[in-house]
């Protein structure tokens, strides 16, 4: 079986910097960053991408469909 290629993505335009993903991340890899998006919110960013285990909890708790782990072949 071919292993799935997983990738952590953030859609900065949708983020409202509510911080729920930051709290949900079991490895503390996320933080509210300094970059502002078009709506005027600070976009969440991966501060320790190397620690990310691609568990996808950030996607589940995000109320704005702005973050997640995408699979591709």
């Amino acid at each position: 079986m071919k292993a799935k290629n997983k990738k952590h993505v953030i859609c900065g335009e949708r983020c409202k910097s509510c911080g729920l993903c930051v709290e949900a991340c079991p490895k503390n890899t996320l933080a509210i960053g300094q970059t502002l998006n078009g709506q005027g919110y600070n976009i969440v960013e991966q501060i320790r991408p190397e620690d990310c285990v691609l568990c996808g909890l950030c996607r589940i708790v995000c109320p704005d469909v702005a973050i997640g782990v995408v699979e591709s072949d």
């Binding site: 859609c11 949708r14 409202k16 911080g19 919110y41 109320p63």
Partner: peptide, 27 residues
């Protein structure tokens, strides 16, 4: 966004941003 569309398919219109307040459970 294109990347996230892979998860959500055709039903969710990702080009439309939710107008809910930050953190709103509706989202």
């Amino acid at each position: 966004m294109q990347e996230l569309a892979k998860i959500y398919g055709e039903t969710l219109l990702l080009d439309k941003k939710f107008s809910y307040c930050p953190g709103c459970g509706h989202g």
